[in-house]
Design a binder for these strands. Structure first.
Length: 475
RNA sequence: GCCCCUAUCGUCUAGCGGCUAGGACAGCGGCUUCUCAAGCCGUUAACCCGGGUUCGAUUCCCGGUGGGGGCACCA
């Protein structure tokens, strides 16, 4: 039963059981997130069950910190799981546990014994090998530069929900238990999927070549394989080089977006569109709509390159529509982490006013600090390029002097009043509002980007504005 | 080297035998305007190549080429 409420197409609980099976050996990256998402979407779309299984058999590389990162990242993305360890890491839920492979040794041992007993496995060099059925012959392997024993077998036919029919030859016995007594990935993966009654295996295309091994394992154990669905991989952005995206690439880690206060719903929306589409031009969609429309056959077969700019755009679109209260919460969360955040947020009304002025202008929350500095300190930076440009046009010093002379008598209560004041001054001089705007903005904010100059003046107040104009005039 | 997957603008993609090949991001131009964004309008830009099949191929088939992945006592 879903705990997130997306039970759309199936009135009753379906038999679909999917799993996301990460190993806690590294940072949680974009590719993992999308695999998790597609599994989650399929579970919610069908009213099935989404299982989180932790593949932590690699003691050397495992870490509790990475384990926590898996829970936190999935939770942040909103991908809740029905079975698996609890999100806080304490205890677990579901009737097919334990959900951490490190605790399932007895189960693997049992299956190993079964294969040994029915002749589908044998021991050699201290390891346990899975035995293929067929005529044996020896051949020299160019790649591994040694002689290997091959087996003439019937080809494995994989009916893939995304790829269609895929045929592959599996012609070599392979290890299922290492000589150190530990089972290998292929084996535990298959055993767990059998034990957990997984109905659909949705995973990256990098596993497609492994699938023939897995199918043979299912056959050897005497179980019908589940449905496979191999999703395309996420490749590096063109400027990042070639190949599939790795944790080393810029923008590859979920943690980064979390730290930059991206909206998880924007990231999820973007990720859903990487390899899937609703069949029409819709792009920005509420999650419920994606859940409703998502299906396996609609998933693309070719790899997709990651585009951080489109993600940023998606984030902006979501940011734009956030209600004021939500935006304030995000802004507060962000500033709380900044070194001078407490001081910045000290005056609540002042802080709020500035944040809401910035909301429609920024692409992501982490731009807020730089975008609003000059509201919180007189010691703000000035963009030299912008300064050069503005000072080169017309006679900005003269305009500034006129503005300084006029300001004391100007009404400062509202944007409209300030606008009227500056316009009156401009008209008197036979000039336009724009002749004063640029230099005033530069003097008061150090840049050419920001809210309207009237809003800046009003929020800063007459005294502070005037002081900055004078300081700039002097400097 | 062997095996598998794949191929439409720079990028994400729509297309499922006949279309002026559509949308989005990015780019460019304009409108708006006090700047910067946003918004609106416009615009540059694609069917990898060669054979078939067909009255007709971006679409179906085959072969190349390009891209990706896999070939362990890693996961």
């Amino acid at each position: 039963m879903s705990i997130s409420g997306y039970l759309i197409s199936e009135p009753t609980m379906s038999s679909v059981r999917v799993r996301f099976a990460p190993s806690p050996t590294g940072f949680f990256h974009i590719g993992s997130a999308r695999t998790a998402l597609f599994n989650w979407l399929y579970a919610r779309h069908t009213g099935g069950t989404f299982i989180l299984r932790i593949e932590d058999t690699d003691q050397a590389r495992n870490s509790e910190a990475y384990l926590k990162l898996i829970y936190d990242s999935l939770t942040w993305l909103g991908l809740d799981w029905d079975e698996g360890p609890n999100p806080n890491g304490v205890g677990e839920r579901g009737n097919f546990g334990p959900y951490r492979q490190s605790q399932r040794a007895a189960i693997y041992h049992k299956y190993k014994q079964q294969l040994l007993a029915n002749g589908r496995a044998y021991e050699k060099d201290g390891a346990v090998w899975f035995k293929l059925l067929g005529e044996r012959y020896k051949v020299f392997d160019d790649h591994r530069k040694k002689e290997v024993e091959k087996v003439k077998t019937a080809p494995v036919v994989i009916a893939d929900r995304i790829r269609g029919r895929v045929e592959r030859q599996e012609d070599e016995d392979f290890v299922i238990f290492r000589s150190d007594g530990n089972p290998v990935f292929h084996f535990v993966n298959v055993v767990d999927d059998i034990e957990m009654k997984v109905s659909h295996i949705i995973r990256g295309e990098d596993h497609l070549s492994n699938t023939s091994k897995h199918v043979r394992l299912y056959e050897g154990i005497g179980v019908t394989p589940p449905v496979f669905a191999h999703i395309p991989l996420i490749l590096k952005a063109p400027e990042m080089g070639q190949g599939k995206m790795s944790k080393r690439d810029k923008g590859a880690l979920i943690e980064e977006y979390q730290q930059r206060h991206f909206l998880p719903e924007a990231l999820v929306n973007y990720l859903a569109l990487l390899g899937w589409n609703p069949g029409d031009d819709r792009e920005k969609m509420p999650l419920a709509e994606i859940v409703q429309l998502f299906d396996l056959p609609a998933v693309n077969q070719s790899n997709a390159k990651f585009d951080g700019r489109k993600l940023a755009h998606m984030n902006m679109v979501y940011l734009l529509e956030q209600p004021a209260e939500k935006f304030m919460a995000l802004a507060s969360e962000y500033f709380a982490k900044q070194p001078n955040g407490a001081a910045i947020m000290a005056n609540e009304a002042y802080f709020r006013e500035i944040m809401l002025l910035a909301q429609p202008k920024i692409k992501s929350i982490d731009e807020l600090g730089a975008y609003t500095v000059y509201f919180f300190t007189d010691d703000f930076p000035t963009d030299p390029k912008v300064k050069e440009k503005i000072m080169a046009k017309g006679d900005p010093k003269a305009r500034l002097a006129e503005l300084i002379a006029a300001l004391p008598a100007m009404a400062f209560s509202t944007d409209a009043a300030i606008e009227a004041g500056i316009k009156a001054l401009a008209e008197g001089m036979g000039l336009g509002f724009g002749d004063y705007q640029a230099v005033a903005r530069l003097a008061v904010s150090g840049t050419n980007a920001g809210p309207s100059i009237t809003s800046i003046f009003r929020v800063l107040g007459k005294e502070r504005s005037l002081a900055r104009l004078q300081r700039f005039m002097a400097g």
